[in-house]
Design a protein around this nucleic acid. Structure first.
Lengths: 247, 247
DNA sequence: CGCAAGTTTGACCGGCCTCAATACCGGTGG
DNA sequence: CCACCGGTATTGAGGCCGGTCAAACTTGCG
């Protein structure tokens, strides 16, 4: 099925947005923490055989849009995405930010259509996992089936935490909670938990946190005044993580 | 596995909270719209064989609590539940209201522990679906596997809509949206979409909609003044559904 | 029937939104 | 290299929505 392994360079970036072949999960630096983690090498080989293509998505482009037919799920290979649901009048709610190793598109399963847009917030690439093939493979491999179900459930848990945030927290708490979440995800990827680069704009953060961009900015300024962190635009350094956790 | 079919009366309400045997999905009035819907009769028979018990949960009692070990999922047989996640300081967010036919407990899959409480808001009963058995059965029955995945995805979609509500709507819009949602769910169950009984208190609605009970009450009064609906306590009649949809 | 729980309504206040002006930043082209 | 430019970010002033506190009323359960 899958073409013989090639080095990533065989599919150069000079063909943006074009599908390219996958070099194989076993060689992927994101494997730990990605979807096919915890599989035996035999299962991984099978899984690998259905993930035959990757796709480049440039900053601002959509991986898929609301109402698009659901065909595949995606694993973020590099870069960052936001998932957005939109109200008829144009108001939008960002439902998540997604980094390397995370899976996108599970929302589409229910009605066979995606319910929101997924947009790259920097130049990014994904592995394409055709859902029909994944489903077939799940029937054969119990660990894979469990993995898919666990991922789904994880999404539900993640969303519950965000509902808690949106329903009960004040602006200050929301931003603190968000930064701590980013911090731990950076750390899990081997980056510094204290100093990192925010990939999204203040407005995107606001649309995620249920507040206006000005309020986001004000809270950043407040945290800086209070000595909890230092910012320069999208560059951020957490100075007092404990204080941030205390709200 | 499953004991011979008995009539529901064989397990009287005089033993509250006790497990009782299941009379079988094929006889259940909630089958259409419940989880094992869309299964062939053979698959239904298999599914039926793992759902051997039901449980009564009285108003105010928890079906399970946050951090309880995840063992089963549940289908609401009769009554209503709320799912609640709680912040360390006690603030709580209601993440959903659940009526007959709906499935509870999918959040627990991810970490093998439930992340929030699920509490009956009136005397209720559930069918117990042991997860280990369900998982095994999914490996055998592709339609059942699909059904479980669809339900999970549906939960994700439902939560996305609530995030939209919590993140972008004003109090008035939130309540209108909530009432319309209830209305259509009532209709789907064969009740009047215009006139029904609210099972939850103003405070529970508020905890769901991200606002205080006083605000919920004020919005009810406003809708009544504006001729959109009539209320008397928990009894509600939607007078102008179109206007309610226009926010 | 009586009491606790739930609901309604009012007055006041504060946090966040709105509107607006200015500053900053990164990229592009002269 | 630097000037310019659009998008992004910061900060301020003022207003409004919804929270808070409080009191009166209703409901329904024991």
């Amino acid at each position: 099925m899958r073409p013989p392994k090639t080095t990533p360079q065989a599919t150069p970036k000079t063909t943006p947005n074009a599908a390219s072949t996958n070099a194989g999960c076993s060689d992927c630096s994101m494997l730990s923490g990605c979807m096919p983690n915890n599989l035996t090498s035999e299962e991984l080989r099978l899984f690998d055989s259905i993930v035959t293509a990757t796709r480049l998505v440039k900053r601002g482009e959509a991986l898929y849009r609301a109402n698009d037919e659901f065909q595949s799920i995606y694993a973020v290979r590099a870069g960052s995405f936001k998932t957005v649901v939109m109200h008829r009048d144009g108001r939008e709610q960002v439902t998540g930010f997604h980094f390397a190793g995370e899976v996108l598109g599970l929302d589409g399963l229910h009605s066979r259509r995606h319910i929101g847009d997924t947009v790259a917030i920097e130049d990014s690439s994904v592995c394409i996992i055709p859902y029909a093939l994944l489903e077939a493979l799940c029937a054969e491999s119990k660990p894979l089936q469990q993995q898919v179900l666990r991922m789904m459930s994880g999404e539900i848990v993640r969303e519950s935490a965000l509902m808690m945030l949106l329903g009960t927290m004040r602006a200050e708490e929301r931003l603190a909670s968000f930064l701590l979440n980013l911090s731990s995800r950076m750390e899990a990827r081997g980056y510094s938990p204290a100093e990192f680069h925010l990939r999204m704009t203040r407005e995107e953060m606001g649309n995620y946190l249920g507040m206006k961009l000005e309020t986001v900015s004000r809270m950043f300024s407040k945290f800086q005044r209070d000595g909890l962190l230092e910012t320069r635009g999208k560059r951020i350094r957490i100075v007092d993580l404990e204080a941030l956790a205390r709200v």
